[in-house]
């Protein structure tokens, strides 16, 4: 098989399958934190999928998009963690259970 066929028939289906599994965890996750971890992993998996696309179609523009996605994933997970801790503190302070 050539490179294109490997990517089209093996690698991209594997990425799609892992995205489906992660989406099941997003839908099922018992706590909010499970969902956030799964969404974080979803963004990172999409970075891998984009890099496979970049090899498939010879588009080097997609590398820049991977950088932006990595930045967004980091910022969103840190922001969520800070927000979650702060919201617990506020709840305790005002006794809003």
């Amino acid at each position: 098989m050539s490179l294109d066929q490997w990517i089209l028939y093996v690698i991209l289906p594997m990425m799609a399958l892992s995205m489906v599994l992660i989406t099941i965890r997003v839908l099922r996750g018992p706590s909010l934190m499970d969902r956030v971890v799964a969404l974080d992993l979803l963004v990172i998996v999409s970075i891998g999928g984009l890099s496979a696309y970049a090899v498939l179609y010879d588009m080097d523009v997609l590398i820049d998009i991977t950088l932006v996605l990595a930045l967004i994933a980091f910022l969103s997970s840190v922001g969520f963690a800070v927000y979650h801790m702060r919201s617990k503190k506020e709840k305790d302070r005002f006794d809003l259970h």
């Binding site: 706590s31 934190m33 971890v37 974080d40 980091f74 997970s77 840190v78 963690a81 979650h84 617990k88």
Partner: peptide
């Protein structure tokens, strides 16, 4: 960045007493 972010998420999960 990934280990830093997931460390913060872990601390948040621990503080939320999951």
């Amino acid at each position: 960045s990934v280990p830093v972010g997931s460390h913060m998420l872990g601390i948040a999960a621990y503080v939320a007493e999951l």
